[in-house]
Design a binder for these strands. Sequence first.
RNA 1: GACCCGGUAGCUCAGCUGGUAGAGCAACGGACUUUUAAUCCGUAGGUCGCGGGUUCGAGACCCGCCCGGGUCACCA
Length: 507
Amino acid sequence: MSEDLNFVQRARREKLDALVAQGVSPFAYSFDRTHTTVDALRLHPADQHEEGDTVRVAGRIVAWRAHGKTTFAHLADDSGRIQLYFRRDQLGDATYAKLDMFDIGDVIGVGGPLFRTRTGEVTVRAVDVELLAKSLRPLPFGKEEVVDGVTVRHSGFADAEQRYRQRYADLAVHPEVRLLFRARSTMIRALRGSLDELGYLEVETPVLQPVYGGATARPFMTHHNALDTTLYLRIADELYLKRLVVGGLDRVYEIGHDFRNEGIDRTHNPEFTMLEFYEAYADYSVMMTRVENLVVCAAAAVGAVWAPPEIEGAVEHGSGGVPQLRPPFPRIQWVQSLNDALGADAMGLGDEALRNAARQIGVQKVETLSRPKVLDEMFQALVESKLHDPTFVVDYPVELSPLAKPKRGDPTLTERFELFARGKELANAFSELNDPIDQRRRFEAQARLRAAGDEEASGVDEDYLRAMEYGMPPMGGVGIGIDRLFMYLTNTPNIRDVILFPILRPE
RNA sequence: GACCCGGUAGCUCAGCUGGUAGAGCAACGGACUUUUAAUCCGUAGGUCGCGGGUUCGAGACCCGCCCGGGUCACCA
């Protein structure tokens, strides 16, 4: 293996050996730090020019400027970075000589008083220095300069594939990427807080399921050895959460991963994060208010901690910042908006006329699609893709919504809505079907499709029907794609940039 | 899946109509006690994605393949 090391790695191994030979342990157990770099900087007031408090800071060496008997460096931690100043007369010959064994990327701890350099930068005058972890592989740090107050980054880490594969290196080198993922966590925490405040209970339901359902998608399959049975990774949480409402947990939610064995592109990762929540005695109009409030709350949370990076050469996440949301969001009827866009009564068209209309607006392979699918495609092309600001689309045709209740007063429609923004679906919700007899019919229709070769169709979930037969309260349910919501709020076009470890082809 | 762009040093990239591999940063040696893309002098570092072909000669041209990015399609 050592023959594979490049010359940079070999040089670092040699330094490691030299340190060990001098009795320095290159991988420490702990370091007693008193301040983060940003806290240390704040400790030293702008008007203070004499030496200040003593601090102990720890982090990664990100820049190194040796000048013979004196050395400047920058140390970065999660909060930011601070300059270090080493002097031979301060540290002594032996300690100062050890600095030669340090490299950019090493994790070190430094103690000493704060002072302000000639150029005004708050700096730690190192009195003691300790190696905490030797970096044996060079991190692709770029160099930074400040031009007219704007940080400009030179020759950094640009290879998108390597940034995803080695997210640890991407994060180590790009503070703006750390900030983005912190904002994602902040958003999820805010969503949890909102639901908790409404009396929702956070629960965990099975990822491994004997029967999959709750959405239309091809599943991942696996096998349990002891039971000698096929299990599926869930494609949705829905049916288990609704079982819990049967059990008397009136308001439940779950934030977790769903798995869909389908294509990978800039808006699809096979494993993605879904928030689903169900509320007994609420219908879809109540849930619309809930979604609106949650999205506004998510936007506020993200906006409070995140803005597009102002570093030239930074990893890009679109522009414009977090959108300003002005609830209530517009609500448009599915049928009406399709008819308006088409200039005809889509639902009233005969099969051939409908297919011709679909072809004309550019729907591909119309002849292979079922009638509901054709309608859905037309709606996507004519309406969805043009919804830029958050908009609720309400009252979907019954053919498109196998788990929703029929609309009161119009059985051709269902009480369902989806929320769209920037042409992408952010949420999907309905007044949940709670009639077990109707549900069995719909399951059986799915099972027939499956028998006919439709891999996306699920089977009959007898246990779920049993739960429903005990009596399922009316309820509203919502699914929100967390990755998509965060992409929308940060204007990030690629889902891989909001997932820490996106799926890639194995190396 | 279709089309477009790309794969050259650890990183970011250049390499013209084919002539035998370049820069900056990082690394290594040296000088330097307030620098900040530090500076200066020197050194080393390459299976040019892989496999064929054309040619006296291929990083470059041709064919095939692999990998990545983008666009479109599919996957609500």
